[in-house]
């Protein structure tokens, strides 16, 4: 009985995994992107038939597309322009072309983001997360163990009690919450903080986490954040 429920649960989560298409001509980087996405809890899917790229993308009905610009026999920017006529599928351009003109062109053709190689993998995942969130369920309020999180106001709400977090604490908490039950490295947290214009150093991160821990435990969530030695943190 229990076995079945677990299986069922796995099925549901497997179905819920966002599917991300990878259109990239370099086989090595495509493999690594695939692994990166799989490790981050997405379902990657490689497109290798460039001649019928457009049809394949439309048929796949995925949640997001990572699109390179320089593909043999294909221009990513033009492909994007063609795609936009038929679908609003979120597209992130991932390219080694580093001119402003390419970025402006891609964005005007309807790309959701533009990232240049070589990129910080954490940043790529952050951008993917942000785009998926934007198109997925805007306005949905994240929650944790019955605590409602209000990022805009910077407060956690449980019943009629409110707990205010500083901006840094909120960024850290949301990141842990988005990766609940996964180990989150300090580097990933740091990248997210810097990506939000909070250029703090290692000590400040440690201080922020212990304060966040304290606040959560004051709110009835004892040991919510566990430290995994040399690996990072995990929100249980």
């Amino acid at each position: 009985m229990e076995q079945i429920t677990i299986q069922k649960y796995n099925q549901i989560t497997a179905e819920k995994k966002p599917r991300i298409l990878i259109l990239e001509d370099d086989a090595a980087i495509r493999r690594e992107l695939f692994t990166l996405l799989e490790n981050a809890g997405y379902q990657g899917e490689e497109i290798t038939d460039f001649a019928h790229a457009k049809e394949n993308i439309l048929a796949a009905e995925a949640d997001l597309l990572l699109l390179d610009i320089n593909i043999p026999g294909l221009n990513g920017e033009l492909l994007l322009k063609e795609l936009r006529k038929e679908t609003s599928l979120p597209v992130i351009m991932v390219t080694s072309r580093t001119s402003e003109a390419d970025e402006v062109l891609s964005m005007s053709y309807g790309a959701d983001d533009y990232i240049t190689k070589p990129y910080n993998p954490t940043i790529l995942l952050l951008r993917i997360g942000a785009v998926l969130k934007r198109v997925g369920s805007p306005g949905s309020q994240p929650s944790y163990r019955g605590i409602k999180v209000n990022p805009a106001k910077g407060v956690l709400v449980k019943g009629d009690r409110e707990l205010s977090l500083t901006k840094n604490e909120m960024i850290i908490f949301l990141f842990l919450l988005n990766h609940q039950s996964q180990i989150v490295s300090r580097d990933a947290l740091m990248t997210d903080l810097w990506d939000n214009n909070e250029f703090i150093n290692d000590n400040a991160l440690t201080v922020n986490i212990s304060r966040l821990r304290q606040k959560l435990s004051d709110f009835g969530c004892e040991n919510a954040i566990e430290t995994k030695k040399k690996q990072g943190y995990i929100l249980i």
């Binding site: 370099d26 090595a28 980087i29 080694s96 190689k117 990129y119 993998p121």
Partner: peptide, 8 residues
């Protein structure tokens, strides 16, 4: 491209 691949 190889730099990006190695990073990944």
């Amino acid at each position: 491209i190889p730099i990006a691949t190695l990073m990944l």
